[in-house]
Design a protein around this nucleic acid. Structure first.
Length: 493
RNA sequence: GGCGCUAUCGUCUAGGGGUCCAGGACGGGUGGUUCUCAGCCAUCAAACCGGGGUUCGAAUCCCCGUAGCGCUACCA
């Protein structure tokens, strides 16, 4: 049932300064659909509301999409054959279309004072008996020519409108109730649904793929196509994204802009993957998809029609998966801005060594769910912990407290000299392990008990990556120094 | 209120008349691995909104109800 026209799809975000997840998802699905049909994916900026539109607010939206790796074939920045790609630059076409409808009697001027936003039946009723509908055309034109403010209303035929949604099947709505609808506001700007239709036709859009909040708008838009004598495109309406409480997804329930996700340390690959699955599923048990894999697996028939709660927990799980599968240098590069922002890269020059940074990043890699957790996970490499705090931990930690502070002090006395002997080229994980292994044998303690005591002394915390590697990357100097400082606070037997 | 859309574990979903005492993933519980944390492995609990039909047989089809959401603007 696909029409014969070449596939051209579009997304038309308002320049809000942010790229909303919903926008991102719709963009993704449009892109995938275009790619699969060898068609074009077009970005059009919906900026008829000039007050809210600035250069920066447009850039914010484009940046978000680009961060996710979504690329459009035509748009305000890249141009294309169907431009301009900003509605603010297409005013003439809306005016021409409205003029035509007026001349053909399919629309009429409306001089009514803007109604109070009286919700419900009253407003609809008022409009159904629209007094301006019957003003003779010549008289209306005269009043407009004399400078009287007027909106333009489309005469809606009182009948049922019907379309076949690609996802939902046939849907109908009786349009005899709402009365004539504004297409051009008194300020000369088009109403959303009118501009959309004029643009979609002007840009030869073949399929309008958007979210479900537009289902109701579709019938009015169908009336516009009808009045203009145009063939409407195919339509599909995706499910809506929801907050955990079932309301439409909003800032209040967590991140909703792709910029928020970036700041939270989420990877674009993970966000894209998760967004893809929020409203589509492959019908297999595969969960991890790259953009390339999505292009192969996607089909619009498998898009969901029931609204879905956006699952931040699953996003974080998925982000952890992507982090774990990053090359270590890649991870180091992505983590760097977060470490910088936390002020960790300011001090020692060694930390600036990218190879060292990659070592550190790889060490905590499997424990990270977000890049933003890296500063906390790595802080002890860059900042010397408080020895007194370490002593407290030695007394409360489940493993360390198996032994008295004096016993731990004695153990440190034993182990410090041979460890110091490794300083230099032999300060490596296997050698450190050998020294501690020998001490363990001598003490008869459980492995975790000694290692925890050293971990706490050297790192100032109870959870670190594998201790031998941690000590190696910490370096002999800092590691021994920290252990000695803690030892100095412990009693002797 | 009117019109429209939707309805499977807490969440995302598979399921398109029998193969479903409903499968997978996240989250949760338990156990294992391990120097801690994490990770990994194993394992458990957890759902067909309600009521009528149709049918030999319904999560799957139809109707009604209920609930949620969307639209109901000279916002987009």
């Amino acid at each position: 049932r696909m029409s014969q026209r070449p596939v051209r799809v579009r997304i038309a975000p308002s320049p809000t300064g942010h790229c909303h997840v919903g926008t991102a998802r719709t963009a993704l699905y449009n892109l995938l659909f275009a790619r699969q049909h060898g068609g074009a994916f077009i970005l059009r900026i919906d900026d008829t509301d000039a007050r809210r539109s600035t250069q920066a607010s447009e850039a914010g939206v484009l940046e978000g999409l680009a961060w996710l790796g979504l690329a459009w074939d035509e748009g305000p920045d890249v141009g294309g054959p169907a431009g301009p790609y900003r509605q603010s630059e297409r005013l003439a076409s809306y005016q021409a279309a409205a003029r035509r409808l007026l001349d053909e009697g399919r629309a009429h001027h409306c001089f009514c004072v803007q109604e109070e936003a009286a919700p419900g039946e009253t407003a609809a009723l008022a409009r159904r008996t629209d007094p301006c509908a019957s003003i003779p055309r010549e008289e209306a034109e005269r009043r407009v020519a004399s400078g009287e403010r007027a909106a333009v209303r489309l005469r809606i035929p009182p009948r049922e409108f019907r379309y076949v949604d690609l996802l939902r099947g046939p849907i109908t709505q009786d349009m005899s109730l709402g009365g004539d609808r504004i297409i051009m506001k008194a300020d000369g700007l088009p109403v959303y649904s009118f501009a959309t239709v004029v643009d979609d036709d002007g840009m030869r859009i073949s399929h309008v793929l958007r979210s479900a909040e537009h289902i109701s708008n579709t019938f009015f838009q169908l009336a516009v196509y009808d009045a203009l004598g145009l063939e409407p495109p195919e339509f599909a309406h995706f499910s809506l994204l929801l907050n955990p409480d079932g309301s439409k997804i909003s800032k209040r329930a967590g991140a909703v802009y792709v910029g928020d996700f970036r700041d939270q340390g989420l990877l674009p690959e993970a966000v894209l993957n998760h967004v893809a699955l929020a409203g589509w599923n492959p019908g297999t048990e595969q969960e991890i998809f790259s953009l390339a894999e999505l292009q192969r697996a996607f089909s619009i028939e498998r898009c969901a029609i029931a609204n879905a709660v956006f699952d931040h927990a699953k996003l974080h799980w998925m982000n952890g998966w992507y982090i774990r599968n990053l090359q270590r240098d890649d991870l180091a590069g992505r983590v760097t801005p977060f470490l910088e922002r936390a002020g960790l890269l300011a001090a020692p020059a060694a930390a600036r060594d990218p190879r060292h940074l990659a070592d550190l990043a790889a060490l905590v890699q499997e424990g990270l769910k977000t890049l933003a957790e890296a500063p906390d996970a790595l802080e002890f490499f860059f900042r010397t912990p408080e020895p007194a705090r370490a002593v407290e931990l030695l007394q409360t930690n489940k493993f360390a407290k198996k032994h008295t502070l004096a016993e731990i002090g004695a153990a440190f006395d034993d182990v410090l000299p041979p460890l110091a002997g490794l300083a230099g080229s032999r300060w490596r994980s296997p050698e450190i392990e050998a020294v501690l292994g020998a001490e363990l044998e001598k003490l008869g303690w459980k492995k975790g008990e000694l290692l925890m005591a050293i971990r706490i002394a050297a790192c100032g915390r109870e959870a670190t990556p594998s201790l031998f590697h941690t000590l190696e990357y910490l370096g002999a100097g800092p590691a021994l120094e920290r252990m000695r400082a803690v030892r100095a606070l412990l009693p002797s037997a």
